[in-house]
Computed example of a mutant assay.
Amino acid sequence: MVTPRSLRTRARILDAALDLFERQGYAATTVNQIADAAGVTPMTFFRHFPTKDAVLVTDPYDPLIAEAVGAQPVHLPPLERTRLGLLAALGDITPTEDATARRRVALVAASPALRAAVVIGTEATQEAIVQRLVADGVTRLDASIAASACLAATTAALLAWATEPDDVTLAHLVRHALAQLAPAGAAR
């Protein structure tokens, strides 16, 4: 069970890591430095993040995304259910989460090694979506295609966001990316 204290500790670790990564670079920052800056032990760091790169490339949204996909009408094609589910999940991003995400994305976009880690992190999101669609009777192949297409568009928007002006939100770019996958004739 995730407690408020656990969430505060995770947020403190994330903030400390981002500050250190921005100041001295991702590669030059150690887990011990992050733990020290956050006022926790390295063991506590690893309870919240399995690796240093996980601070930048993982998020707690997979269950929310899968639930949002599952809430879409089952008569819709899997791609459209996934697209609409991701759009619905976007509505839950707060301005604070958006600001933190921008910092994370800027660091990831600057590092080819971290971009590879994004792919691994996306696999968990894809699997959550696939499982949800399969539970509703979609074939695993069709569910995988739908999730892959929507997450590829979302990832492209995410990485492009690092170079956008400060007033451009992640939600705006993701909506734009997902609109490219809308059925013919749908509003883009």
Rank of each mutant, 00 (worst) to 15 (best):
Asp59Cys: 09
Ala186Trp: 12
Val119Asn: 05
Ala38Lys: 00
Val174Pro: 12
Arg104Asp: 02
Ala17Pro: 03
Ala128Leu: 07
Ser111Gln: 11
Thr58Tyr: 09
Thr29Asn: 01
Arg104Tyr: 01
Pro78Tyr: 03
Cys150Gln: 08
Met1Val: 10
Leu170Ala: 09
Phe21Asn: 00
Arg8Ile: 03
Thr163Trp: 13
Pro63Ser: 13
Ala16Tyr: 01
Pro60Gln: 10
Ala54Tyr: 02
His48Ser: 02
Arg103Ala: 06
Leu86Asp: 08
Arg140Ala: 12
Val57Cys: 12
Ala182Asn: 15
Ala153Glu: 12
Pro60Phe: 05
Ala147Cys: 08
Pro60Trp: 09
Asp59Ser: 15
Ala147Asp: 06
Ala179Glu: 14
Thr9Glu: 11
Arg12Tyr: 02
Thr169Met: 06
Thr82Leu: 11
Leu14Arg: 03
Ala11Gly: 06
Ala153His: 09
Pro112Glu: 11
Thr96Ser: 11
Pro50Asp: 03
Met43Ile: 05
Leu107Ser: 01
Leu170Met: 13
Leu86Thr: 06
Pro165Asn: 08
Leu14Ile: 04
Arg115Val: 00
Leu158Phe: 12
Pro42Ile: 00
Leu20Asp: 00
Val69Asp: 08
Ala147Asn: 05
Leu76Lys: 11
Arg104Lys: 15
Trp161Tyr: 11
Ala153Tyr: 09
Leu114Ile: 03
Ala156Lys: 10
Glu97Tyr: 04
Leu64Arg: 15
Ala88Pro: 11
Ile129Ala: 06
Val138Gly: 04
Ala182Gly: 15
Gln131Lys: 14
Arg104Ile: 00
Pro63Ala: 11
Ala66Asn: 09
Arg102Ser: 03
Thr100Gly: 05
Ala124Leu: 07
Asp36His: 07
Ser144Gly: 12
Ala152Val: 09
Thr139Ile: 07
Leu141Tyr: 10
Ala68Asp: 10
Asp15Ala: 13
Arg132Gly: 10
His75Val: 10
Gln24Val: 02
Asp167Cys: 06
Thr51Lys: 03
Ala110Ile: 05
Val138Pro: 04
Pro165Asp: 13
Ala28Glu: 05
Thr30Ala: 03
Ile93Gly: 07
Arg102Asp: 04
Thr44Phe: 08
Val55Phe: 00
Thr169Val: 09
Glu127Tyr: 07
Ala135Cys: 08
Arg10Gln: 13
Thr169Ser: 15
His172Glu: 15
Ala156Phe: 12
Ala143Tyr: 04
Leu114Val: 02
Gln24Lys: 05
Leu84Gln: 15
His75Pro: 01
Asp62Asn: 12
Ala162Met: 06
Ala28Ile: 01
Thr139Trp: 06
Ala101Phe: 10
Arg12Gln: 14
Leu7Trp: 05
Ala89Glu: 13
Pro183Asn: 14
Thr96Arg: 12
Gly121Cys: 02
Val105Glu: 09
